[in-house]
Design a protein around this nucleic acid. Structure first.
Length: 271
DNA sequence: CTTTCAGCCTGGGCGC
DNA sequence: TGCGCCCAGGCTGAAA
């Protein structure tokens, strides 16, 4: 699931579900997560759930103790699933549970078949503050973007994926953003003209905002059962549309490989 | 310094 | 049905 809009959606929904609930127990099933020391959140209550870059950030509090911060990165296949009351997740997914937080009123499962996801706990929220700029924040100005691009040596597609420059954009939205502002993914990032940078700036904000409004993109519908279902897949203009007509000019959408990852674009309207 | 590329893992879909 | 192959929304760190 997880680029900025999907992680934002998860964080918002989880905030509603688990805020102010208290952790009665923690079970870490996957040995890869043992080093997170997740058990330390026991008896803490959930103060907030938010998004930082592509991570879900939990703040836990407990009387007379410093707050604890938990950052969950979902990577490719991770999900955080809230099960109210005595409900559990579907049987066929039980084997993919990597950790579980028992809260008063339900359980929060970290499910992740591919096991790329990570969890980290810290007393310092700054440990999880992203290096790159948050594209939906007021700090993300045209001027900042212009400065970031000035010495960029990569092509536009690769550059948009760089989390140390702008956070939250992944493979889907990189293609969608570049199609929206009519810039070819092959263009070298420092060679954009002033007007093009302005269009790019607008498209980054517009595409991400629209995706958030639609709760992100969901490819597999088995997620319906958990309430985390986006609908932005219906609005994708190029992603996974190889050989289908461009929605703007009807030219066949191309799929190319850049940095060993698929890029989709229209060679007619992106240049 | 930049750029490439394997590796982390597993499951789903496809062709045969 | 079964097998091998390719693909996958992310990111790191070693090698070139």
């Amino acid at each position: 699931m997880p680029e900025l809009p999907e992680v934002e959606t998860v964080a918002r929904q989880l905030a509603k579900a688990v805020r102010r609930r208290t952790v009665s127990g923690v079970k870490v099933h996957d040995t890869k997560l043992k080093s997170s020391q997740l058990e330390r959140i026991s008896q803490h209550s959930v103060k907030s759930v938010s998004r930082s870059g592509k991570q879900v950030l939990f703040t836990f509090s407990r009387a007379k103790q410093p707050d604890l911060y938990l950052a969950v990165h979902l990577r490719m296949t991770g999900r955080l699933v809230w099960c109210a009351g005595n409900k559990s997740i579907p049987e066929n997914e039980l084997k993919h549970i990597r950790a579980c937080m028992e809260l008063n009123g339900g359980k929060l499962f970290f499910v992740d078949p591919r096991r790329f996801g990570t969890m980290a706990l810290s007393k310092n929220s700054s440990d999880f503050s992203p290096k790159g700029l948050e594209p939906m924040s007021p700090d993300f100005t045209l001027e900042r973007l212009t400065n970031l691009l000035r010495n960029a040596k990569q092509n536009m597609k690769a550059w948009l994926l760089r989390q140390d420059k702008i956070v939250g954009i992944g493979n889907i939205y990189a293609s969608e953003i570049l199609h929206d502002c009519k810039i070819s993914p092959k263009r070298s990032a420092h060679k954009l003209r002033k007007a093009e940078i302005a269009l790019l700036h607008k498209s980054i904000q517009k595409i991400l905002a629209r995706a958030i409004e639609n709760c992100g993109t969901t490819f597999s519908d088995f997620q319906d059962a958990h309430g985390v279902t986006g609908s932005y897949q219906h609005y994708l203009k190029v992603y996974e549309r190889e050989n289908l007509p461009c929605k703007r000019c009807k030219t066949s959408i191309l799929r190319i490989t850049q940095q060993q990852r698929s890029t989709y674009y229209c060679r007619n309207c992106q240049s």
